[in-house]
Design a protein around this nucleic acid. Structure first.
Lengths: 160, 160
DNA sequence: AATTTTTGCCGCATTAAATTCGGTAAATTC
DNA sequence: GAATTTACCGAATTTAATGCGGCAAAAATT
């Protein structure tokens, strides 16, 4: 019931997790029907899943284009040094940039991959020139502009 | 109030969107306090944001490790042909694979970038060999394994 | 294998939240 | 500047969440 890898949950919990990933706004009453329990134990299970940290949070998903965000990209970033100090300095800077919505440390081509979202190409360029490439630990950058997003699932495939 | 790019919303709506992206489980009563309106018009605004498609859906975010998902990757996929037929055939196959949680058509290095999540390296390899590389339109694949995720924000930076 | 203990469930009562509605004021249109 | 629409509030109502006592099944103990 704390902070470590892999927590136990049964088939019913699994179903709850699948449902809440797909639709967090479902009422407890409806959820209880869907899983075949009464509301009380259903709610208890959800609370436990939250307390155990299996469920971390709940979020509204917006349509980027409708709020004026027309350009999404992935950026491979190579750092100058691969030591802990540099990496931490880089991450600290990235943390401040709200347009960077993801940042992963990776193997392979680059050192980091970022997901960036911005208004248009102009503001994207500005962001890259004035903020990302200004971070002194950054060596190389390679942008991949998203032409279209075919799949963007918020449902993780929970292993059997 | 339909399907096209960029819908109008004011400063209050903007704040609602920021709050609901960060915490979809907030009560309408609390949300109304946070934005400085009474519950009734607050609810009305949220409903409108949903109906207009600005808010697309609500999702629970899980901790991948706690449900036994230890390996996440990005995969750059090059296709054999770049014609519409091939691309659509590829997407159709990808759609069936639940471990592929994202699929974007991109400019630059590859043709597509996928985000994949699986149990461990063994099951990842199996997935790649038996499912992804079996898709006949797939030419090249380059995997980037995520060593750690530093930022994974569900909050889009809504332009002013 | 019987007893104890724990776990998980249900139904009901209570509390809290969402939703509806009528009325009013501000903003917009004509 | 009158008419119309839009957006707000407060209060009443409906609906949902939550808390609790009791019961039954499963698990642990002896």
């Amino acid at each position: 019931m704390d902070n470590y890898i892999k927590v136990k949950f049964d088939k019913i919990d699994r179903k709850i997790l699948e449902i809440l990933q797909a639709n967090a706004k479902i009422t407890n009453a409806q959820l209880s029907k869907d899983i075949g329990l009464s509301p009380a134990p259903t709610l208890e299970r959800v609370k436990k899943l939250e307390q155990s940290g299996i469920i971390k949070s709940y979020h509204a998903k917006l349509d980027p284009e409708k709020i004026g965000l027309g350009v999404s990209t992935f950026v491979l970033v190579g750092l100058i040094g691969h030591n802990k100090t540099n990496i931490e300095a880089f991450m600290k800077e990235i943390d401040h940039i709200s347009e960077v919505i993801e940042c992963h440390h990776i193997t392979g081509t680059g050192d980091f991959i970022l997901k960036i979202i911005s208004k248009d190409i102009t503001s994207y360029q500005k962001l890259m020139l004035e903020k990302v490439s200004e971070i002194k630990e950054v060596d190389s950058m390679q942008s991949m502009v998203i032409l279209s997003t075919f799949k963007d699932s918020k449902v993780l495939p929970i292993p059997a």
